[in-house]
Write a protein that binds this DNA or RNA. Structure first.
Lengths: 157, 157
DNA sequence: GCTTTATTGAAAATCATTTTCGCTATTCAT
DNA sequence: ATGAATAGCGAAAATGATTTTCAATAAAGC
């Protein structure tokens, strides 16, 4: 739950978000800053859905519409500030983007939905070599493992 | 486009699909057989969406509703005959399920949507070790690499 | 065969996400 | 700074894939 102290995050300073947005013709708004702040005040690698973002902002007294949230998320994905994740169930999640070689991957419990992150340098190496082998320029790679977590296993048995 | 001659596929013989369905209390129907046939008459690893399934069956003169298609797909995923894939864009794809250690992975062009498959034993090994390390029972793992394919690169430059 | 009940198709319902539109607020040049 | 141009905002309507409802049909098993 601590802001990550290691990675020099782009939006940590308001100035930077504004600069990055304006560089591409987008405008800086308080809503966009608040959404980015949410990600930065969570643990590194914490993922949020649009609904969770709205709820968390409401909890801290900020009313925001879904259209604004989705537009902000798309802009920040386009600017490489965020990464879009498909953690099952027809809902998209977003998290702070990290350089490709530092990417982490996900272990999802299909029963309770719990998600754990793990690092594995091998993954991105394989992604890199497979894509260059086929002439693709690599943008991103995701490795997701689905299983049943220990506590659900005991519930089910 | 050839039916795969190597893997002894469960639904190849109609008897088998019926047996597998009945074993779990589901009923054998011609619609389910036709859907499974579609997958088996395509190349191994070929993936289809519900819409593509409906179109292909219509093309061969078979009318089928989306409710039936989705229900059949879910049943077959539950029976481990098919595997559900999330190849971006809010649409689900399905393909014949292969034993976990033979699983292949996907390289997706985010521009034109082309998908290539590749095998990589390393992936499933990592998935296995990560999940057992955390006490998860492994069900499935997917590795998806996003990039831009050679032809789109030349179009864009 | 006959009964039970899972399955089907058509249409309505969901649900996350996207778009529309009138209004507001940011940007940039003056 | 001031103002014109326009990106972004919120509310509500629209979209599009998937799911559910419900009456009619057809497998399964006795």
């Amino acid at each position: 739950m601590e802001p990550n102290p290691v990675l020099p995050s782009l939006g940590q300073e308001p100035e930077l978000l504004k600069t990055v947005l304006n560089k591409e013709g987008f405008r800086f708004t308080s809503q966009r800053q608040k959404i980015l702040d949410l990600f930065q005040s969570s643990a590194l690698g914490h993922h949020l859905s649009a609904e969770e973002i709205q709820r968390q902002l409401l909890d801290q007294g900020e009313k925001i519409s879904f259209s604004t949230i989705y537009r902000a998320l798309h802009v920040m994905v386009r600017l490489d500030l965020l990464q879009e994740l498909e953690l099952a169930e027809g809902r998209k999640y977003y998290e702070l983007n990290t350089p490709c070689m530092d990417q982490h991957h996900h272990l999802v419990c299909v029963h309770c939905g719990a998600v754990q992150e793990f690092d594995e340098a091998t993954m991105t190496q394989v992604g890199q070599s497979e894509s260059t082998a086929r002439g693709f320029s690599l943008l991103n790679c995701t490795f997701t493992v689905y299983g049943i977590c220990p506590s659900c296993q005991s519930l089910l048995s």
